[in-house]
Structures are given as C-alpha cells and as structure tokens.
Design a protein around this nucleic acid. Structure first.
Lengths: 167, 167
DNA sequence: AAAGATTGAGTTATCAATCTTC
DNA sequence: GAAGATTGATAACTCAATCTTT
C-alpha cells in the first residue's frame, strides 16, 4: 500500500479545521490522538514486516517475549491477559497458534484446576531471540528520532497510560 | 475487559530487561514503540465507546469527517484512500457500510469513467457533527495531559510521520 | 456464585486476483 | 499496459454465551 507523500500534513490541516469550527479546546487533543493512531499504524507496519519472516504477529511476539522474560518461561493464561492488556479470547487464540508452531506448550496449572499454563519451548526461545535481534536493528534502533524525543514520548505516554489505570 | 492496575509500569520493566540483555541502543526505541501501541489501544477504546452510540467505527468516522471538510462534501475513493492512508479495499468496505447507513452516496466520477465519488448526505453531516461534539467533550478535551504535553506529543510524532514519508 | 478458559458469531483489515476504463 | 475499484480468502480481535472448577 505504498503511497506518494501528500503536499501537507493532514493532521495539522485537521487541527486548522477544528479551530475554524470553534473547537479550540479540543483541537490539541484531537491532533495528539490522531497522531498516535497514525504513528501506531506506521510502526505496526514496520514491525509486522520484520516479524513476517518468523511467521509471527506483534501480538504473538509480545506473548513470547513475556514468557521469555518470566522466571520459568511459564505463566498462567490469565496472567498473560492481564500483563498484555488483551482479552482472554485473544490469549486463547494466540496460544493456539503458538502451540501449532511448536513455540509454546499449554499445560494444566497444578495449583489451580481451572487454569492453564503457557510455557515457551526451546524453539520458541530461539525464535524470539532472533526476532528481537532483527526488531532491534531494523526498527527500534532506527526510528529517526533523537534520544531526547524518545524520552519525551515515553514520558508523556507514560502519564497517559497511568491516568488510564494501567498501573 | 476491565482489569485491575498492575503494581508497576510493564513497559519500564521491559526496558530494564532490554538493558540487562545488553540491548541499550534499542531500549529507548522499544519503549517508545511499545508505549505508542498501548496508547493507541487505550484511545481507540475510548473513541469506539463514544462512536458506538452512533453506530460508527473510528475508520468510518474519519471517512465522514474527511468528506465533511471537503469543499463539496465529495471525494474520489482513491483520494480518500490516499488521505486516510488505508488500503483501497478498506475504503470500499467502509463506504459500503456508510451507504447502507444512508450517511454517504456512491456515484460515478463524471471526469473519470473508472472512478467513483463518495458524497456525504445531510444525514451523514448530522451524524458526524453530533459524533464530533461528543468526541470533543468526552475524549479529546479530557486526555489528562497538559497543553505542553500535547504539543510535545504532536511535535515528536510529526517528525516520525514525516520521516515515514507521510507528507 | 465467581473465576479461568474456550467457542462461535460478528466486524474489520489486508492481500492477491480480477474487471473495467483510461 | 496502468490505474481505479471490487471481490473472495485469510487472519485477528471482541463480545456474549458456555463449560468447568473453585
């Protein structure tokens, strides 16, 4: 879906429209929200381009990464849902795919008969390490933003997440 | 999918893990990208909550808004795809839904036999105005960020979009 | 009754292939 | 042949309903 660039910033133009309609109070928020939506779209595209070679989506990559960072490489499905802030049904689906790919196993939780554990396999460790290397070099290290910009971004979005009750 | 808050910032924790693994160079970028993904998820949730009352998604709202701001309330489908940076198939789909809802009409483009025009109807104007009022008051004006934070956000993400070739 | 997890239905987005018109 | 648009297949997410265990 490659497009040629526009001759102007479409979000700055939207903000102008907002002010022309007398919505000054909402204009900066509209511009910020729209910018985040568009930035996410751009970044997810780059990330998915990298992960396609590993037959992973960002959602499944994040799940693998979470398991890889956990002490025993094992977490209850409910814990995963909570940590990644996604619906339980999405976890079920992602784990299904990862089990099919041989990157994760799904076993009963010995300490809770209702629950299940997801455990990363050696193959999963391998894939997540390789994918991380590639994401680091191809995306995260080359965003074209200064260290200062990245820190500002993190700081402001941290406030947003905090006021949303994330932590 | 309401969850109770975590006792720590999961993204700050991921950044620590990154540094522990010797990925210092990629850590700030990883934190920024992950923060944007999560912020988008939070904001899209709020926006969709508001738009549900109007039977709209954010994608369809953006399409309506774009038409409402255009000179004659009319744009070629290709132009819409370009402006919103979405796949042509997505525009076809969104316009289908909006036509079903009576908010948009789809007509042949008189100046290009291959093309089609989407035109907002009076009902569409009405809905997009009401939805905008509600978004402004319920989301855009109450993000819990200072004017300065919003401007920083916009400025940094503007750089990102620019370096991605958006405009 | 409440919590953990799965299922099936409904929605949306993307891609490749196709059709029409330039 | 190239551009505008649609179609069908595929994949992913969410929700409500359901099942099992606590």
């Amino acid at each position: 879906m490659r497009q040629r660039p526009l001759a102007f910033d479409p979000i700055a133009e939207a903000e102008r429209h907002w002010r022309d309609h007398g919505w000054e109070e909402a204009a900066p928020g509209m511009a910020a929200v729209t910018s985040i939506m568009r930035a996410q779209q751009i970044l997810l595209g780059r990330v998915d381009d990298v992960l396609r070679a590993f037959d992973l989506t960002f959602a499944r990559y994040e799940l693998l990464r979470l398991l890889a960072f956990s002490r025993q490489g094992t977490l209850p499905l409910g814990k995963i849902s909570q940590r990644l802030q996604v619906h339980a049904a999405s976890v079920t689906n992602a784990v299904d795919r990862l089990v099919d790919q041989g990157l994760v196993t799904r076993t009963p939780n010995p300490s809770d008969g209702r629950g299940l554990l997801a455990t990363i396999t050696p193959a999963g460790q391998d894939v997540v390490d390789q994918a991380t290397e590639k994401l680091n070099s191809s995306v995260f290290s080359s965003l074209g933003l200064s260290e200062r910009d990245l820190q500002q971004l993190f700081r402001v979005l941290c406030k947003l997440r905090q006021s949303a009750g994330d932590f």
